[in-house]
């Protein structure tokens, strides 16, 4: 990934995907899904937030494991930068979800206590806020990186339980559980798919782009303060 930081091709790809998402997403003909109607377009803007958040967390997890194996600070810098951006996407996922919920479920806030998927996402955000607090409470860089990597790997497993296992056990207002049909069964027809998958790619690439800028800034900060960065 480091070698790709300065390359331009994937940034152009990202812009292309995003332009396509935001034009086609608003213009294409969508199927008339019962209850959702035209708000189904939010699928292109809300769901990719969560997808790219999870993808960024996953890449961050890989870099945490890499850091524990190699002990190179640069891997820790990458892991934490990805998580920072993942947090932003998580918050954006909430905001877009609130907009959608406002139209479908009637108001902006009541679902927080009612829906396990949202609860799972909230737990995920809490876990990573705790991660940043943990980082803040250790002064030594090497120790901070090591302890944070251990916590992030340990927490990711339990996070997976809360977003993958628990929602399947309980009922939810979201599609795919509690008797609601999944999008993949009949809602996500080819028209939606044609925009949805590029949207996920575009969002994820945008996340990687932003985190690459954070990574480069952190590297500069390390260099300026003469902290060895192997």
């Amino acid at each position: 990934m480091l070698k790709q930081l300065h390359n331009r091709w994937w940034k152009i790809l990202c812009v292309a995907f995003l332009v396509y998402t935001f034009t086609a997403g608003l213009l294409i003909h969508t199927p008339d899904v019962p209850l959702l109607h035209e708000t189904v377009r939010n699928l292109f803007f809300h769901v990719p937030c969560w997808f790219s958040m999870l993808l960024l967390m996953l890449i961050s997890l890989i870099y945490s494991i890499k850091f524990l194996r190699s002990g190179r600070m640069i891997h820790d810098v990458i892991a934490v930068s990805l998580l920072k951006v993942a947090m932003v996407f998580g918050v954006l996922g909430y905001l877009t979800g609130m907009l959608w919920g406002n139209f479908i479920w009637g108001d902006l806030l009541s679902w927080i206590t009612n829906d396990t998927k949202i609860l799972g996402a909230a737990i995920g955000l809490l876990i990573y806020f705790a991660y940043f607090i943990l980082r803040g409470s250790i002064d030594d860089e090497e120790k901070r990186a090591r302890v944070a990597a251990v916590y992030s790997i340990f927490a990711f497993i339990l996070l997976n339980v809360s977003i993958n296992v628990v929602p399947r056990l309980t009922s939810s207002l979201h599609p795919g559980s509690g008797g609601n049909a999944t999008f993949t069964v009949y809602d996500l027809d080819n028209n939606l798919r044609m925009v949805f998958y590029p949207a996920v790619f575009g969002y994820t690439l945008l996340g990687l782009w932003i985190s690459s800028i954070i990574i480069r800034m952190t590297i500069l900060h390390y260099k300026k303060n003469d902290i060895p960065l192997v």
């Binding site: 737990i123 876990i127 409470s137 340990f154």
Partner: peptide
């Protein structure tokens, strides 16, 4: 970490919620 008593609660409660559910 420094201030470990508080850290204990901050770090453990979020990851225990799924188990509690």
């Amino acid at each position: 970490a420094s201030n470990s008593g508080t850290m204990m609660a901050i770090l453990s409660f979020p990851i225990l919620i799924p188990i509690l559910i």
